[in-house]
Amino acid sequence: MSSSIYDIDIIDIQGNKSNLALYKNKVMLIVNTASKCGFTPQYQGLEELYQEFKDNGLVVLGFPCNQFGAQEPGNEQEIARFCELNYGVSFPLFAKIDVNGANAHPLYQFLKKQAPGVFGSSAIKWNFTKFLVNREGNVVDRFAPTTKPDALKKQLSELLKL
């Protein structure tokens, strides 16, 4: 497992390979997403956070995942189109990944180790679990899917030093 979040390789929703070093010195809000979930309307709130804070150093990173109730059945082009048309998503989206199990993406292995969930369980429980990473690349908090994006504004303002 990577010792730094910035060493983790990622593939964006267009299939381009890079790594999280692209977001060094940014505050990252990392979210496992799905298009057919009860929490899907949170895309709107995530986009609003991104628009409000991106000029101050926030980046929202969406990682589609089909591990919960098969709620992300589409391919990358369908996901991108859905997010843009329905929620105006302009924050970075990535290729579909697993967040749990033997094939869990290295990013989620890292995040879950840094910020275990309730009762020390590292498993992601559902879509729209959120991880907040500071400018130094440290995971500073983990939020349940039920936590609405606008509930993060105070903490984001503190991390962004606004």
Rank of each mutant, 00 (worst) to 15 (best):
I5H: 02
I5L: 12
D7A: 15
D7Q: 15
D7L: 04
I8Q: 12
I8G: 09
D9N: 13
D12Y: 05
Q14A: 15
G15E: 12
N16Q: 08
K17Q: 14
S18H: 12
S18F: 10
A21Y: 11
A21W: 14
L22W: 09
Y23T: 07
Y23K: 07
K26L: 00
K26E: 09
M28C: 01
I30A: 04
N32E: 08
T33E: 08
A34H: 01
A34E: 11
S35H: 06
S35N: 14
C37N: 15
G38E: 00
T40W: 01
Y43H: 06
E48W: 03
E48I: 03
Q51P: 07
E52L: 02
F53E: 00
D55M: 06
D55A: 13
N56K: 15
G57D: 10
G57E: 12
V59F: 00
V60C: 04
F63C: 03
C65A: 13
C65V: 14
N66M: 02
F68G: 09
F68E: 12
A70L: 07
A70H: 11
P73A: 10
N75W: 09
E76Y: 12
E76L: 08
Q77K: 13
Q77G: 03
E78K: 12
I79E: 07
A80P: 07
A80L: 11
R81W: 02
F82C: 14
C83Q: 08
E84M: 10
E84C: 10
L85A: 08
L85R: 14
L85W: 06
N86W: 01
G88A: 10
V89W: 04
V89N: 03
L93A: 04
F94M: 00
F94H: 02
A95T: 15
A95S: 15
K96H: 07
K96P: 03
K96D: 13
D98E: 13
V99A: 01
N100C: 02
G101R: 14
A104M: 11
H105T: 11
H105I: 05
H105P: 03
F110S: 00
F110I: 00
L111A: 06
L111P: 04
L111N: 04
K112C: 10
K113F: 02
K113A: 10
A115M: 13
P116A: 04
P116F: 06
P116S: 05
P116R: 07
P116H: 06
V118P: 10
F119D: 09
F119H: 00
F119L: 10
F119A: 13
S121F: 00
S121G: 10
S122I: 11
A123T: 06
A123V: 07
K125Q: 11
K125S: 08
K125W: 10
N127C: 01
K130S: 03
F131Q: 12
L132T: 00
N134C: 01
R135V: 03
R135P: 01
V139S: 09
V140S: 04
D141R: 03
F143E: 12
A144R: 09
P145V: 11
T146P: 01
T147H: 01
P149Q: 13
D150G: 03
A151H: 09
A151W: 05
L152D: 05
K154I: 05
K154M: 06
E158A: 11
L159H: 11
L160G: 05
K161R: 12
